[in-house]
Nucleic acid binder design. Sequence first.
DNA 1: CATGAATGAGTCTTCATTCAT
DNA 2: GATGAATGAAGACTCATTCAT
Lengths: 214, 214, 214, 214
Amino acid sequence: MNAAATALKPRKSPVQDRSAATVEALHAAAIQVLIKEGLSRCTTTRIAGRAGVSIGSLYQYYPNRDALLAAVLKQHLDGVADAVEGICRQHAGAPVSRMAARLVSGFLAAKLSNPVESKALYAVAEARGGHVLAARMRERMVSAVAAMLESAPGAHFDDPVMTATIALNALVGPVRTLLESRAPQGLEARLEGQLILLLTAYFQAHQTERERTA
Amino acid sequence: MNAAATALKPRKSPVQDRSAATVEALHAAAIQVLIKEGLSRCTTTRIAGRAGVSIGSLYQYYPNRDALLAAVLKQHLDGVADAVEGICRQHAGAPVSRMAARLVSGFLAAKLSNPVESKALYAVAEARGGHVLAARMRERMVSAVAAMLESAPGAHFDDPVMTATIALNALVGPVRTLLESRAPQGLEARLEGQLILLLTAYFQAHQTERERTA
Amino acid sequence: MNAAATALKPRKSPVQDRSAATVEALHAAAIQVLIKEGLSRCTTTRIAGRAGVSIGSLYQYYPNRDALLAAVLKQHLDGVADAVEGICRQHAGAPVSRMAARLVSGFLAAKLSNPVESKALYAVAEARGGHVLAARMRERMVSAVAAMLESAPGAHFDDPVMTATIALNALVGPVRTLLESRAPQGLEARLEGQLILLLTAYFQAHQTERERTA
Amino acid sequence: MNAAATALKPRKSPVQDRSAATVEALHAAAIQVLIKEGLSRCTTTRIAGRAGVSIGSLYQYYPNRDALLAAVLKQHLDGVADAVEGICRQHAGAPVSRMAARLVSGFLAAKLSNPVESKALYAVAEARGGHVLAARMRERMVSAVAAMLESAPGAHFDDPVMTATIALNALVGPVRTLLESRAPQGLEARLEGQLILLLTAYFQAHQTERERTA
DNA sequence: CATGAATGAGTCTTCATTCAT
DNA sequence: GATGAATGAAGACTCATTCAT
């Protein structure tokens, strides 16, 4: 593990009970401050203050501000990736149209379950440490989706990883726009349907001839 | 125009040549500093220094740092939106497959012509002023694409704005991932083809029955 | 004993074995941290950590950080002073040239036996408590050397304390420069001979007429 | 010039008049704070405060606290080295006894002209950047003294640099002890005479046979 | 108009020390 | 006695912005 990676690791794991509480409070506070004040005003002082914890305690658990934000982001991204992986596992062998539908609705559900948090974390993902985490999560999800695609009956994907990458990122764009909520009104309502349509069409373009004419 | 909006407007128009040159130098310098140092170290002092201009002069042209960054972002986004609008105008009445192909290649060309700049500006777009500009640009492009779609022969779009929104944002995701260059190797090479496939499939899913069976 | 002096005393005497071991571990750890990190980063946390002792325990034995460092310094200085005193006792009545030679080699041996430690402790000696300790040790050594000088046959010292002070401090300067290791290459090798020459010449300048012409 | 060296260089040279005043005020303030509070309490805030200057201004001229202290130390050391060099130049060709006398009195005059400042700066010299400066100054002085020694009539020095190093450092020790003023009372009064005796004896130990018996 | 010196609020971070468990 | 979580004062340093020259 190189120095840069180490710098973002949490400093110590809570062994006593109150430690765990402190860490939890810090996480929650970080998200709240992020939402309320934005990344640039999401300072260690404010986070500690809102968590009802001294600034020193914050630094007992995280070596620096970025490490704390990275931890928060990681938690969020892990949740999303877990959801996607679960879906992919469940729908191995399903027809591509079902795959598309479940993938879309699962991803949306994960991202939109706490839209304010999701939105706020985009800023964190843009910071130096964030890119790495986001990339890592995308890798996990791409692998899962690619594996699912390969199991699809009547479809052949020359390069399932590529297809999965495109499909996943094609979801990310619209969702992000929606969350940043400058989206045209009504987008949310019909988003799911349209994204299912998008992915279904994309996946079916890979179907074998026999399947397509059936 | 409210106060917030006013605050981001450049202070005076470059009526004189010298002014125009200074503004241009500041823009270029801002991008360079942004690329080299990142948003948080992209300070007014550094920008002015690299532009060969005094700090005082910088503030002659922009009321504050955010206004300068917003102007730089706007320039970039306008370029992309112009490109997309041009393409949409040129391909009115074309078959949807051609529309998809041209839209993708035009958007990619605009974004990837200077990938380092494009990438660096994502950070600016994430800042408070940036969202507004990005949303405005997306609106322009969505309108253009929607108009183009409506002119497509043999296809009917119930809600062309929605379709355009989805299509455009479906491009944005993969391109962003590519630019943030945590993309799997080989993505770039095959990206264009895959995105054309994606949009073509999506657009064709809206074709009228007659066209589809033809 | 005034308050300041009290503050630097160890808190309790190591009557039990465990205590003695802990104190010893703390001393050793303090020196290691001092060497590795420098005085400003020689913190109580780090010392305790390296000693394998909890912070709380450290404060069982020392009322504050300075007291610990002072104890460490004192141990070192006592060692040097003991060595010098021993030599002075052994060479009472010897000719001044022998006194000079033994004094130099004894002092060098004491200081250079662990040069890294000696060097690191200069920083501690520079801190507020350190001056007092260093002065006290110098006094001890000066007394011993002065007594030795008075016993020299064929030499008369009007003010043996003064002579001893000069002689001792004349050793301290070159040794310090050597330890701070910015010394010109080759200094170390020939240092002992030169210092013996220096002190011998100085002592012999005090010889009685009879002895000198002999 | 490596990074470490750069880090201690002043940031910019004052071009306007008030700049020069600011820098001068900072130097003076640094010395005063150092004397009054000691190195560990000689903080940027306190220095700026005493200089009647904002903290920001301090950082316009020095990249960090150590650079400021290094500049102050350098000024002091340069003064001493200049004095010694001057003396060495003036007494080329003089008898070694005169060399010893002038060297001692010149060095003492330089160091004791502002004893409080001299004393306070020992702490700075102990800090990381200080060692380098002190070593550099010692080199300058050693070269000058060595050159002077080589010009002495009737004396031959096999290794004048070594002799100069020993001689100079033999002065440094007692002077330091005196300045740290834990020296036995009366030391100051008779110090000069004793140091002259010390160096004279040392230098004369190198005299050629003919000269010594003359 | 241009310049760049000065400002000082606001950041991050460290560390000696305490005290509940 | 031992532990280590919590504390918060204090330090170094940055940077947008102003304004006298």
